[in-house]
Each structure stands twice: as structure tokens, then as C-alpha cells.
């Protein structure tokens, strides 16, 4: 783990060095498992930044 990376709500995919689409999907799935939720494919593709992911999670029924 690289501790120098600090996520804020404004963090975008291009802000993280060596980020790619497959790491992104692993990250999203890790979030899903941690919180016991499931995103829709369309949402996964459209998240612009960390804030958008947080907003989506808050809007989801638990």
C-alpha cells in the first residue's frame, strides 16, 4: 500500500499515479464488499471522482 496517496472527495482517477481501469474496478469491488452494497455497471462507469462514489453510496438503500 502506498500511504502517500490521500483520497479526498475531489480525487479523480487521473490523480493517482499508475492508476488504470482494472485497478479501479478492484477498488470499487473492495468498497462494495466492505460496505455490503452492489453498484450498477452504469454507475461504475460514470463515477467522476471519489465524491461521486460517496454520494451514490449515501443514496443507496441499506
Amino acid at each position: 500500500m502506498d500511504d502517500s496517496i490521500v483520497l479526498t472527495k475531489e480525487t479523480r482517477r487521473e490523480d493517482v499515479p499508475n492508476w488504470d481501469s482494472l485497478i479501479y474496478i478492484s477498488f470499487i469491488v473492495a468498497v462494495e464488499i466492505e460496505l455490503g452494497i452492489k453498484f450498477r455497471v452504469a454507475d461504475v462507469e460514470s463515477f467522476a471522482n471519489v465524491g461521486a462514489i460517496v454520494a451514490q453510496i449515501k443514496s443507496m438503500p441499506r
Binding site: 499508475n18 482494472l22 478492484s26 469491488v29
Partner: peptide, 15 residues
């Protein structure tokens, strides 16, 4: 990825 991670197998991790 969902299947692998729920089984506890490692996902995609760059290098």
C-alpha cells in the same frame, strides 16, 4: 472481480 474478491483472492494490483 466481484467473484475473486468475495472469495478472498487478490484482485488486479498494477505491477
Amino acid at each position: 472481480t466481484r467473484r475473486r474478491l468475495t472469495r478472498g483472492q487478490p484482485g488486479f494490483a498494477g505491477h
